[in-house]
Structures are given as structure tokens and as C-alpha cells.
Design a protein around this nucleic acid. Structure first.
Lengths: 144, 144
DNA sequence: TTACCTGCAAACAGTTTGCAGGCCG
DNA sequence: CGGCCTGCAAACTGTTTGCAGGTAA
């Protein structure tokens, strides 16, 4: 399996785009984190390494990362776009604690299968789906 | 079971709010539609009945409807809030056609149960969830 | 009468875009 | 060199809010 960074490099090459220090820095920052960073958070981290980078470049680059397939935009419901790694990491859903904001990536094969069946029952062929489970984690319940 | 409009009236009374023509008009327009209207769409329809109503009032009223429990805000991923009826209509998920925009409300008891189990496995107690299935409907596939 | 409401416009937050200069290939 | 890139600031979109006047109870 190729490295995500390589996937991005291939994408750049194939589309006659250019490898720039800004893009490389942003990809690096993005890949270093396991979570679901907002553009703002990515921008903050990027600025620490190079304060001259503009916010627009972060927005533009994240779009490129999505197009290249190594990033995926997710929305948790608060009107802010977040990004997670999508290349090499399996599809998953989200389990979010409403108190502390903790966010687990979860997956259940049986649910995945039932989703396809449910869609098929209505004549749909699924291309993707998003499932967000909101609740309270055990830490927050015991700490209450 | 009470009528949604009655639920809203009770909410108004209980919170020392007031019944105004604008609010009544907006509720009426909202309840008349089965779908998932955006604030913009609601505003357009409201204006047809009374052009003097302002957009802010629509926003403010939809928030009230959500608080009162007869409306629910949903996000399909395009950064626009939509509203659907939530009082008297069972929980459901969404099956969206990516080509024609068709939107079915679906539900699968087995999936609902597995979601609870999946959350419990991670120590969570679920309070709610959102599931959006994206695909292509049979009409669009055959019409292609 | 007294809150609460309303329309308007300004303010906001997140995101996009036009532009003039800069840099990769 | 030529076209893609960048930072900046202005523009945009969806939504919220302050205000002065209006209205339900």
C-alpha cells in the first residue's frame, strides 16, 4: 500500500499541479494528527511551523487533499468542517460524547450490511453514508 | 395525541411568549410541508402569504419550533439547515439520491438496536443519532 | 401598561475568490 | 518563461443580533 503522501504526490503530478512548501507543510500537519481537525485548528498548527502561510491556502489545500482521496470532510453538526484521513483508513462511523466532546471512530459490519439492504429495499444503490451516534460516555456519566 | 400546533401553543403559553400572526403563519407553512425545507424555502413560502414578514422572524420562529419539540433541524451536508416535523412522527433516518435529490425517510429497527449495542460496547449511552445514506435511486439509474 | 415581537440593517463566522506578485518545473 | 500558487483583503453565504417602534395579554 502506498503512503498517503505518495498518493497526494501522484495526484499533484497527474493534474499538472505543483509541489510547494506550503502544500507539503499542510499535508504533513494533517497526516500527523489522528483526529478530526477543523480548518482553523489546522491553520493554527501550520502557522506554528510557518507563520507566513495564509488561511486561504489551508482551505485550498484541504480541498485538494479531499480530491486526491487522502482526506475526507466530515460534519458533526456544528457548522464547521472537519477533516479526517481517508486513505488507508477504513470507513467508519462516529460516536460522539455530548458532554466532553470525545469522539470515537466505530464500525459495525452488521450495521453496514443492513444499511445496504435497507437502501436496496427502496431501490437505491448506496455510494456512501454517514452515521453519527450522540450520547454520553462512561467517564462523563460516572463523573457526574 | 395532541396536534403539533397545540403543542406549540402550549409551549408559547408555558414560556410567557406570545401568539403573533407571523408565528402562526410560519408554523402553518412549516406543518403543511412533508419534506425538509430550508429556512430560505420557508421564507419564500411565508412571503407569498405575507410579504411583510422578515427573514429574521423565520429564523427565530424555527428555533422556537425546535425548542417546542415540533420541529427538528437536520443537515444533509451542504451547510444549510433544514427542518422536518418531529412531533408525532417517529424517528427516522435519511436515504438521499445524489442525482435527483430525492429524499426518503427510512427506518430499520434492527439497525436502531445494533446502534444502541454498538454504543454500549464502548461505554456510551445514546441520546440520539443521525444516519444519512447517500446513493442513486432506481429512477436515476434507469434513466441514465 | 409592559413585556415580548417585529422588520431592518448591521454584525458575524466560516468559507470562497479576485488580484498582483512569486515560484515551480 | 509560463502557468500554477500564494497571501491579502474583499466578497459571499447562512445565520444571529441590536435597535426603535409595534402589539399581544
Amino acid at each position: 500500500m502506498k503512503e498517503p503522501i505518495q498518493v497526494f504526490a501522484d495526484y499533484i503530478a497527474k493534474n499538472n499541479l505543483k509541489v510547494t512548501p506550503q502544500r507539503m507543510l499542510i499535508v504533513e500537519v494533517f497526516l500527523k494528527d489522528e483526529g478530526h481537525l477543523t480548518t482553523e485548528e489546522l491553520y493554527e498548527r501550520v502557522k506554528k511551523a510557518d507563520p507566513s502561510v495564509g488561511q486561504a491556502t489551508v482551505y485550498r489545500t484541504m480541498k485538494l487533499l479531499c480530491d486526491s482521496g487522502i482526506a475526507k470532510e466530515v460534519h458533526f453538526g456544528d457548522g464547521v468542517a472537519r477533516y479526517e484521513q481517508s486513505y488507508g483508513s477504513k470507513h467508519h462511523d462516529h460516536l460522539i460524547c455530548e458532554r466532553c466532546g470525545k469522539n470515537l471512530e466505530v464500525i459495525d459490519d452488521q450495521i453496514e450490511r443492513l444499511q445496504d439492504e435497507l437502501a436496496a429495499k427502496h431501490g437505491f444503490v448506496l455510494t456512501s453514508h454517514r452515521m453519527y451516534l450522540y450520547g454520553v460516555c462512561s467517564d462523563c456519566r460516572s463523573g457526574k
